[in-house]
């Protein structure tokens, strides 16, 4: 059963993402801030990390840098799950090193299909309409 770590500070949005992933049969790990997320990622080695960008303290892009810097987590797949959905945001984040990109608000079909794609190793799987 694939294991997915969500790093998201908004508890309601965390709940939404977690439920959807659970419906799809994934094991979900949750972290409300980046440092806790880094810790979980190191110890539990999730198949995919979904990372909010606007986080208290360390933001999502910095957290991605930490993950990539640590040999224990450098190989993990990390996708951005963010409300940054203006034109150019997607390109900016993918360029920063994220493997995928999901714009909030998410739609369950697209979201789960995107997650499945990322888990299947399809590098182009990403979703989100940018504005």
């Amino acid at each position: 059963m694939p294991r997915i770590l969500i790093v998201e500070d908004n508890p309601i949005n965390m709940k939404l993402a977690a439920r959807l992933l659970e419906y799809a049969g994934h094991e979900v790990l949750q972290a409300e801030e980046a440092t806790a997320g880094l810790c979980l990622a190191r110890e539990r080695q999730p198949d995919l990390v979904l990372m909010d960008i606007m986080l208290p303290g360390m933001d999502g892009v910095a957290a991605l840098g930490e993950l990539r810097a640590d040999p224990a987590t450098a190989h993990l797949k990390v996708a951005a799950l963010t409300s940054y959905a203006m034109k150019g945001d997607r390109e900016r984040l993918l360029e920063a090193g994220f493997d995928g990109y999901f714009a909030k608000p998410i739609r369950h079909k697209e979201f789960l299909a995107g997650v499945a794609g990322l888990l299947a190793g399809n590098p182009e799987a990403e979703q989100g309409r940018d504005r």
């Binding site: 939404l16 409300s83 959905a85 714009a103 998410i106």
Partner: peptide, 12 residues
């Protein structure tokens, strides 16, 4: 960003 965050939950 700020408006999308609550909307995520509403729509989702």
């Amino acid at each position: 960003h700020e408006l999308r965050t609550p909307l995520n939950a509403v729509i989702g």
